[in-house]
Design a protein around this nucleic acid. Structure first.
Length: 270
DNA sequence: CATATGTCCTGAGAGC
DNA sequence: TGCTCTCAGGACATAT
């Protein structure tokens, strides 16, 4: 998503609009008037990312942080429909617009000062990025926890960037049952987990992300993600890895988890 | 402190 | 056709 809108770097924000301000608008902080005043006329100096959020660094030092959550899309043009278009930044420069579209309305857009950015997204609030963390640090941060490994991988304070799809995909590749408490994993497990986490995420980036059956996710260019799930949303289907097991869906912390009982046995030796 | 759970919201699809 | 039910990529407040 960040790569898809990276070209807004260097553009100047001419206007800020909220087309749905009167009907169930998404959360914008601070309020529309202040937001508008501090954003219009500013140049977008950098298009970054912190975990699953996109960060537009402005020349004022402030940053616009976009949190798409479940169904939000950050686009340059052509939203799926006009009805769920929440934020429009009119730009001058190489790109003419940056849009935030969100069918479920759970997304959040914030304008933060450098101090607020540190308080909201610094250490303590947000763990190291999943693509940058070392194996040793990953182990240090999770190994003592009694929580299920699948649930712990989704904790953005421990490590930032892993979501519900890739948590299942990663554990499948290392043959670890998702309900295992973290403290049951040995040193070798953490090494493998670190390596496969990198592989899964990089493969997802190459594939332009993941699109579920609802076709909700689109890239900024309007394409669906092509990441091929091995377990996610494949309940009842044969395991592509071992060919023996049948993928099972369970619920952990109100989220779906998928795994192969043959590749990821509950009671495997540690 | 660490861990567990409910909730925010809309829409798609299944089953009756 | 139209109703009800379940499910959905996340994060946070509150409870235990």
């Amino acid at each position: 998503m960040r790569r898809g809108v990276a070209s807004v770097a260097g553009c100047t924000i001419r206007d800020f609009r909220q087309p749905r301000l009167q009907v169930q608008p998404i959360t914008i902080r601070p309020g529309p008037k202040t937001f508008r005043r501090r954003v219009v006329g500013r140049r977008i100096a950098a298009v970054g990312r912190v975990g699953k959020r996109i960060v537009l660094g402005l020349d004022s030092g402030d940053a616009i942080v976009i949190e798409p959550r479940m169904a939000g899309l950050v686009l340059l043009a052509d939203p799926p429909d006009r009805g769920h278009l929440h934020v429009v930044l009119e730009l001058s420069g190489p790109e003419k617009q940056l849009l935030f579209w969100d069918r479920r309305g759970l997304g959040v857009v914030r304008l933060v000062t450098p101090a607020e950015f540190a308080a909201c997204y610094g250490e303590g609030k947000m763990g190291p990025d999943a693509l940058e963390i070392s194996a040793a640090e990953l182990r240090r941060r999770l190994a003592a926890s009694r929580r299920a490994i699948k649930v712990a991988l989704l904790d953005q304070r421990a490590l930032a960037g892993i979501g519900n799809i890739y948590a299942s995909e990663i554990l499948h590749r290392i043959g670890v049952h998702p309900a295992w408490p973290c403290n049951r994993l040995g040193r070798g497990h953490w090494t493998k987990l670190h390596a496969q986490m990198g592989k899964v995420l990089r493969e997802a980036l190459r594939s332009q992300g993941s699109t579920l059956r609802d076709k909700g996710f689109r890239t900024a260019a309007g394409e669906v993600g092509r990441y091929r799930f091995r377990v996610y949303q494949r309940a009842g289907q044969p395991c592509l890895q071992c060919g023996r097991g049948e993928i099972v869906r369970i619920v952990q912390a109100q989220r779906s988890t998928f795994f192969c009982p043959a590749c990821q046995p509950e009671d495997a030796g540690v």
